[in-house]
Amino acid sequence: MSVIALRNATKRFPGAGGRPHTAVRDLTFTVDAGEFVAVVGPTGCGKSTTLSLVSGLEPPSSGEVDVDGVPVRGIPDGVGYMFQTDAVLPWRSVLDNVAAGPRYRGAGRAEARRRAAVWVERVGLAAFDRYYPHQLSGGMRKRVALAQTLVNEPRILLMDEPFSALDVQTRALMQDELLRLWQGTGAAVVFVTHDLEEAIALADRVVVMTSSPATVKGIFDVPLPRPRRVEEIRLTPAFIDTYREIWQSLREEVERAREEASRRAA
């Protein structure tokens, strides 16, 4: 049984003039335990809405969204969510930022800090555990955010363009770091990105969404072995062939979204 299953899931929001705006429609795909699925599509097509449906932050207007075979009626247990902007608290040190999750879940202060210290070390920040967010680089803050998410040992990891604000070199390092820390955890990952190269380098499958209102246009397997180093894997013929195949599908939707935006602007 799949950990995550969307079946004809549709989400509508109130729109201008009282007419509903359909963000996503008839979404259907699954994610298994230990599987890394990336979601790509044109800007504003509803990729983040998909994560909101899985996380329980938004209920579907119609269709079904299940986690572990149970319809999502609230935030399911075992879900970790990493946003585009990090959620580090400026008045807390690195260690105490990472310890906050276990504390909220009922762990005592000493136990929470012990668990946090393990993850601070795993993300390479043991020497900076007493630093505050304003003393850290952008990449280091992302490492804190990653530790904040993984310290709770989520069964489902939802990631909404978490590395998009980073420079190219730091982004590649964080992609490798994510793969290293995720490998072997058994967590199901849904990773939203605008970057097709990032999607292919990380994922087992890539879901291509149509222009708004988004639905699933195609699902592509990524035939690249694990473990991976993203900068090395991008140079292989298999990566290039996979990119070419998926881009042919994605390009049509990007062009359609651009034409629609131009039409509205006119």
Rank of each mutant, 00 (worst) to 15 (best):
R7L: 10
N8V: 04
A9S: 12
F13V: 13
G18T: 15
G18N: 15
H21Y: 15
H21R: 14
H21V: 15
A23Y: 00
V24P: 14
R25W: 08
L27I: 15
D32V: 04
A33P: 11
E35M: 09
V39E: 08
V40P: 11
G41R: 10
T43W: 03
G44Y: 13
S52C: 11
L53Y: 10
S55C: 07
L57R: 12
L57T: 12
V65I: 13
D66I: 09
V70W: 04
V70Q: 15
P71N: 09
R73A: 13
P76T: 09
G78H: 11
V79Y: 08
G80C: 07
G80N: 05
M82N: 04
Q84Y: 08
D86Y: 14
D86A: 06
R92D: 04
S93H: 03
L95R: 13
L95C: 03
V98Q: 05
A99P: 02
G101P: 05
Y104C: 11
Y104A: 13
R105H: 14
G106P: 11
R109N: 06
E111Q: 11
A112V: 06
R113L: 11
R113Q: 10
V118Y: 11
W119M: 08
W119I: 06
A126C: 03
A127C: 00
H134W: 03
Q135V: 07
G139V: 01
G139Q: 03
R141C: 02
Q148G: 00
T149A: 09
L150C: 09
L150D: 02
N152P: 00
P154M: 02
R155E: 10
R155Y: 08
L157M: 07
L158T: 01
L158S: 01
M159H: 01
D160T: 04
D160L: 02
L173F: 00
D176S: 06
E177W: 00
L178T: 09
G184Q: 09
G186R: 11
A188E: 09
F191D: 01
F191Y: 14
F191Q: 06
T193C: 10
D195S: 14
D195H: 11
D195I: 07
A201S: 14
L202R: 03
V206M: 05
V206T: 08
V207F: 03
S211R: 12
S212W: 11
T215G: 14
F220D: 08
D221W: 11
P227D: 08
E231D: 12
A238C: 01
A238W: 02
D241I: 02
T242S: 07
Y243F: 14
Y243G: 00
I246L: 05
L250W: 01
R251M: 07
E253F: 01
A257N: 04
A257I: 07
E260F: 00
E260L: 14
R264G: 09
A266Y: 06
